[in-house]
Design a protein around this nucleic acid. Structure first.
Lengths: 182, 182
DNA sequence: AAACCCATGTAACGCGTTACATGATTAT
DNA sequence: ATAATCATGTAACGCGTTACATGGGTTT
């Protein structure tokens, strides 16, 4: 699969970045709603991609002597990214969700504890939902009324609209399910 | 985390099973929409749980000499399962979705190829959706008009209703997004 | 007889997290 | 000065997939 490999190639295709920058993408930017990676995974992966010739780096100095490796994608890297983006996945991959596993077994604990589980989950998803709504409002300011395939913000738009729908229906489902635990 | 550990404990809490039975649960039953594991992961995990005293097994013979290990949960195992089911998770875990990562970078490929990607994904989710609808109809026959927390089928009901909502909104989002790729 | 399902295991490898480890720069 | 942020790495361990490996039982 090598998903992180392609995530990094995709990010670098937009412009050069350091390992630290990539780390913050997964921590702060839209894509964090669907993928993440820690710096301890990113740095070895960058080394590997460099060895494979898919990316390259130059060293920049911050301030007096702090070294920063600024990575950029190579032609081979662009080719690999395009290959991944164009490959049609035929298999249906299970989208794993640990809370749903708990839900499947929930009858093993008393009803009031189950309600507590669901209520806690609902709070989390409600928080995420209002955060997403704020993010979406900000995006609307940037893109105006129209969004097109060619827009620089198209990826953000896709990810945010999907995340919004996801959290909306998750909240709905949690609320519906809580009705059975009264 | 040890998610598989608790998945196995949850399954065995409903009744004794072999490793093969557990494998088929993840392949054929409702929970496959949110979790899965291969036999190569299940058998070592069963060994580990046995060593930890959370489950135990007896050997049954199928036919002439085919040995089957039938596992059951111990009191220690039930305690551990209850602990896991009652623990409130405070962190918001990123629900990973590789297709959404592709969507984030989709502008890197030509519009017609992007449309193909989204169309392929839509077909997969539509198929899954009609399959879920069939599964839900079957469940409705079993449970009748009412479902309660105490019902044996409550876990199935929760998982199926969530999966239905998930696939519905995924299809909606894919169709909406395709509008921008004309 | 062949195909398919039941049944169990191991080995190699890759993915991912937590913890260990260090040091510079910037903002308060 | 001290806290937060910028910046990069490694080590140990656990999770998960693919492939290797074997053999019995059932159905066509």
């Amino acid at each position: 699969m090598r998903v992180l490999k392609h995530a990094i190639l995709g990010l670098l295709d937009r412009g050069e970045m350091s390992g630290y920058d990539i780390m913050t993408e997964f921590k702060d930017k839209e894509i964090r709603h669907f993928w993440s990676a820690k710096h301890s995974q990113i740095y070895p992966e960058l080394k590997k991609l460099t060895d494979e010739g898919l990316i390259e780096f130059k060293i920049e100095i911050q301030g007096e002597k702090l070294e920063k490796k600024v990575y950029s994608i190579t032609d081979a890297g662009k080719k690999e990214l395009n290959k991944w983006l164009s490959t049609l996945e035929q298999e249906f991959i299970t989208l794993k969700d640990e809370f749903m596993l708990k839900a499947y077994f929930i009858s093993s604990i008393p009803k009031d504890e189950a309600r507590e589980q669901f209520f806690n989950e609902l709070e989390k998803h409600k928080n995420r939902l209002s955060f997403l709504e704020e993010e979406f409002e900000k995006l609307k300011v940037v893109i105006g009324d129209e969004i097109t395939y060619e827009s620089k913000e198209f990826g953000n738009y896709l990810v945010l609209t999907n995340a919004l729908k996801r959290e909306n229906r998750y909240c709905e489902w949690l609320e519906d399910s809580l009705q059975f635990m009264k």
